[in-house]
């Protein structure tokens, strides 16, 4: 038996890559931002992250084993990513039971009800976040003060929240910007917000690592950021007193986090470059529309979820250019 030859169809060699390796690369890419959040928000950030990860892993295992009756696939790393992303999307002071409920929504509703990894339509972490945001708006929007390096700029609201409130109270941009952190601070990560969204720079570094490792392609992040940047610049040029400068839009809130880590989620984004650009531009336009004209200060989560819903449609109608095709 042992000396029989194996016969299989070609190809007979296979790349070293595996689903698990890809997933862990995403995790590595999130580590700089995670460390920064612990630095800024203290051990609370670590507490929130650990609870979210543990809850996501546990729910995946339990649901797969006892409800779906399949072999649990906890070790593939996807639940770990969902857990970290979920933690990245909440303020550090959030009570533990809200995170657990959010994890249940993320894994149960967002992922496993569709059949698990690869079959979900919506990004599970965002399903969890939006579920929490709508169910517990107060806890989800009370931002603890940050321990900033250097000046003790204690912010208890996100820059976007400040802008939104200021504009709706009829203040002009120049009046509002006095209470805003500088754009450089925002870029480096000295501002209020959810765990993962504070430092745009570290998120970009993580994104570059993923680009280098070919976990993601440039299409989605660039399309999202470019469309937000262009629209914000256009409005700002027309009326700088009613619209903040594009820098605030690019470096504030979850835009970087969303564009680099959540919009690029493989399962829920389109499958070819053309489709990915359409998807990215869609996210950018919806995000900036919500930020400027909607009632929420931040819109990236909704924008990504809305475009997730369009992904199957984009996949059906946007085809890659065939070799030798017209």
């Amino acid at each position: 038996m042992s000396n029989l030859l194996t016969v299989s169809p070609s190809p007979h060699v296979h790349t070293d890559d595996s689903t698990r390796k890809i997933m862990y690369r995403v995790v590595y890419a999130m580590i700089p931002a995670l460390i920064w959040s612990v630095f800024v928000f203290g051990l609370d950030a670590l507490r929130v992250t650990l609870i979210a990860v543990a809850a996501c892993l546990a729910f995946e295992y339990l649901i797969q084993k006892y409800l779906m009756k399949v072999t649990p696939s906890v070790s593939d790393g996807s639940a770990l990513i969902t857990g970290i992303l979920l933690a990245f999307n909440v303020p550090s002071g959030i009570p533990w039971w809200i995170i657990v409920i959010g994890s249940l929504a993320a894994m149960g509703i967002g992922k496993l009800s569709f059949g698990g990894l690869g079959n979900n339509i919506f990004n599970p972490a965002l399903v969890g976040r939006v579920f929490m945001l709508i169910s517990f708006p107060a806890q989800m929007t009370s931002w603890p003060s940050i321990r900033s390096a250097g000046v003790d700029s204690l912010t208890s609201a996100t820059p976007l929240g400040v802008i939104k409130e200021g504009l709706s109270n009829g203040l002009s941009v120049s009046e509002i910007s006095k209470s805003l952190p500088s754009q450089v601070d925002m870029m480096l990560g000295s501002m209020g917000g959810s765990l993962g969204e504070v430092s745009a720079l570290l998120l970009i570094i993580g994104g570059l690592y993923m680009l280098y490792k070919k976990v993601i392609t440039w299409h989605i992040p660039v399309a999202v950021l470019a469309s937000v940047g262009i629209i914000a610049t256009a409005f700002w040029l027309v009326d700088p007193q009613s619209y903040v400068s594009p820098g605030y839009h690019l470096f504030s809130g979850g835009l970087m986090l969303g564009a680099i880590f959540m919009a690029t989620d493989m399962v829920t984004s389109p499958m070819n470059p053309k489709g990915q650009i359409i998807y990215g531009v869609g996210i950018g336009v919806i995000t900036i529309s919500i930020r400027m004209f909607g009632s929420y200060p931040e819109g990236i989560s909704f924008a990504i979820l809305i475009m997730n819903a369009f992904t199957p449609l984009i996949n059906t109608y946007v085809k890659p250019k065939r070799f030798g095709g017209k």
């Binding site: 299989s8 990894l117 690869g118 493989m266 070819n272 890659p320 250019k321 065939r322 030798g324």
Partner: peptide
Amino acid sequence: ESTREEMNTCIRCSRCVSACPMGLE
């Protein structure tokens, strides 16, 4: 190296699309 590894579910990473020299899916 002669046996294949276990097959998993598609995670829609679209690597096959970018690897296909004929522009297929």
